[in-house]
Simulated scan of single mutants.
Amino acid sequence: MTTTQHPPLRRREQSGWAIIENAPDTVRHRVLLLPGLFCTAEFYTAMLADPALADAGVLAMGADPPGFAGRPVPSGFDYSIERYAAMVEDFAAQEAVGLIVGHSYFANVGIEIAARGRYPGRLLLLSPSFSRDDEEHDLISLDEAGHVPVLGTLVWLGIDPTLKKGMRDRLPSDRFTELFAQMKRNPHAANRHLVAGFFDHLRRHGELASRLAGTDNVVWVGRGDRDEVGFTAQEQATIEAAPHVTLKTIPGAAHFSITDEPHEVDELILELLTLHPA
């Protein structure tokens, strides 16, 4: 039996972003993959290496924007969801991206992009939080502590052992050391700003399901069938009633669907591109 050989993943930098991408022989679609909080583009490498994408002509770009993976941010950057939405829109236009995939934190950025209506393409949002109460208790506690000057500094200084313990059973065992090392690349100060900006956005809007439901973009919301992030019956009803939003379940996946079931997420990408061509 013969197998098709695919080129290794390529790495480049563009406009302050670090990119890891596959190399299809023919490019029919350009897809941007954005990481979750504390994560990096390396969390997407199993998806990027999947030949299903390259065979379908999908140029997939796992990206670390400024403020992630230790990358510097522009002067005066406020780490808000709105600022990241604008940054992603600009980058997507520059790279002619037809589909944005956001996991967790960047799924919430994707909700903001959809609500703004400036990006003309499609979105696949993996495990967003539609309200503050949907978020995991540990992250809520981290945000609350971060607003207390001395306590917040102490909590963030000691976060690595706590984070390591919390991630032990949530990342693939054969990649745990590699992926946890990626989670330590960003300075604590930057992560503290990201967490604060994320929860500020949730507090400001209250709930985001109705905000997403009003979009004219084609949006798929993907969640693992054992996802740890909350999803209320009311939020589900709002999403299912939205004319341009589709809810998808990822079998066998928890919150980290991109490492739990990378091929299943790639299949969602291909299905979305096929059913909703540009």
Rank of each mutant, 00 (worst) to 15 (best):
A196E: 11
C39Q: 12
K248P: 00
V31K: 04
R168Q: 13
M47T: 06
L151Y: 10
L126F: 01
S127F: 05
I250R: 03
N186W: 00
S173I: 12
L32P: 02
V27D: 03
E144P: 08
Y119Q: 10
C39I: 02
L33H: 07
G152W: 09
A196C: 10
W17C: 12
A213R: 00
L247K: 11
D200T: 13
T3K: 14
G76M: 11
I111A: 10
L273S: 03
A233D: 15
I159W: 04
D25C: 08
L123I: 03
G16I: 05
P262T: 09
V229Q: 01
A96R: 15
S80K: 09
G224E: 04
D266A: 15
P251V: 04
H147P: 08
G158N: 15
E178L: 13
R132E: 13
A254I: 05
H205K: 11
F231A: 01
E21R: 11
S141M: 15
G146R: 04
R71K: 07
K184Q: 15
R226H: 15
E235C: 11
G70V: 11
E228R: 12
V155C: 10
E235I: 04
T45R: 14
H137F: 12
R28S: 13
F199A: 07
T177P: 00
G67R: 05
H193L: 14
F106Y: 09
E112Y: 07
W220D: 01
I20N: 02
R118S: 11
R175P: 08
F198L: 15
S131I: 02
L142W: 05
L208S: 00
F77S: 03
A49V: 07
V218H: 06
R170H: 12
G222T: 01
A242I: 02
L212A: 03
D169F: 04
H193Y: 12
T4F: 10
H193S: 14
Q14W: 13
L208R: 03
V101E: 03
L270D: 03
P120I: 03
A254G: 15
T274E: 14
P74C: 02
G110E: 01
R211A: 06
A233E: 15
A85V: 04
Q236R: 15
R223W: 04
L268S: 06
I140D: 11
G117R: 04
I140S: 11
P128S: 00
V219I: 06
R71A: 06
